[in-house]
Computed example of a mutant assay.
Amino acid sequence: MANEFADAVPTPKDASTVILVRDAENAASGIEIFLLQRVKGMAFAGGMTVFPGGGVDKSDGTAEVEWAGPSAQWWAERFSTDVARAKALVLAAVRETFEECGVLLAGPSADTVVADTSGYSASRVALENHELTFSDFLKQENLVLRTDLLRPWANWITPIGEARRYDTRFFVAASPEGQVADGVTSEAAEVRWQSPQDALDHWRAGDSILLPPTWTQLTELAKYNSVADVLAVEPEIPIILPTLYRDETTFRIDFPNQDDYYIPGPHPWAARPAK
């Protein structure tokens, strides 16, 4: 196969994705991950099963908020970027998680977290509709951004050749006790909590579509037995830029440790028709 996309290279947009984890009720079952199936027909990843997340807004870069936890400088070092960009990425991670599933990594003080987000439903809709900035929301509710509840996890860039490209930083976070992750967003057709292995089995059976970054994170998280184990990890975070190839019959994305992604099965990437 040959790469046919060298002349079409849109600049990737910064994005943040948060992998919410919780301990399964049965300790022997390990951890569970919150997943959304995106609405079909969306411009990017329509119909795919993903973690909560989205693009960085301009307001994320200019936000002035009360910040608890690791500094923007610390985040910049972990994600190999500058301080302003790191700050925007962290703000986007917390904002998108709240917009997409109602989980809010913020609290009345630097060592507390909101126990119930249902009272913020109107603000959540306003945020999703870009009628309210996240910094204004936090100020109105006297909330502190809890960056210490997040952990840096990975960095993937959409392959050259895709019409929409994102430079996405992945975070992990424990779902706060008392808060309920839901699917009350215009972008989700379905949501579910699944163990990483169950999510991979669901995909392998052809019941969901996982893009390489999502598949890779689930494969990695399947190694851990508890949320504490996940949060204790300090992973290396290389920039991963997969390569998109196309011939007369299939698209193929090459990325690190991909072999099991292409095992025979009904999942769509086994034989995706060319456009």
Rank of each mutant, 00 (worst) to 15 (best):
N155P: 03
N155W: 14
W156L: 03
I157L: 06
P159H: 10
I160K: 10
I160G: 07
G161R: 07
E162T: 13
E162R: 15
A163V: 15
R164I: 15
R164V: 13
R165T: 14
R165M: 05
D167E: 12
T168C: 08
T168A: 07
R169E: 08
F170G: 00
F170P: 00
F170C: 02
F170R: 00
V172A: 06
A173T: 01
S175V: 11
S175R: 09
E177P: 01
E177L: 06
Q179I: 11
A181D: 03
D182P: 01
T185A: 07
T185F: 02
T185W: 03
S186C: 06
S186D: 14
S186L: 09
E187D: 13
E187N: 11
E187H: 13
E187I: 12
E187Y: 09
A188N: 04
A188F: 07
V191T: 15
R192S: 05
R192D: 04
S195D: 02
S195H: 10
P196H: 08
D198Q: 12
D198G: 06
D198K: 06
L200P: 01
H202T: 13
H202W: 15
W203R: 06
W203K: 01
R204E: 14
R204W: 11
R204D: 14
R204P: 02
A205V: 08
A205C: 10
G206P: 05
D207N: 12
I209V: 14
L210C: 07
L210D: 08
L211K: 08
L211M: 10
P212W: 10
P212F: 11
P213K: 08
Q217E: 12
L218Y: 01
L221I: 04
L221V: 05
K223M: 03
K223H: 09
K223Y: 05
K223S: 10
N225S: 12
S226E: 04
S226A: 08
V227D: 00
V227H: 00
A228I: 04
V230Y: 02
V230D: 00
L231Y: 04
A232V: 05
A232M: 05
V233S: 02
V233T: 09
E234I: 10
P235R: 12
E236P: 01
E236S: 15
E236G: 13
E236M: 06
I237T: 10
P238Q: 15
P238D: 15
P238I: 15
I239Y: 07
L241A: 13
L241R: 11
L241E: 14
P242Q: 14
P242I: 10
P242T: 15
T243W: 02
L244T: 09
D247R: 05
E248Q: 13
T249P: 00
T249N: 12
T249I: 11
T249L: 05
T250A: 09
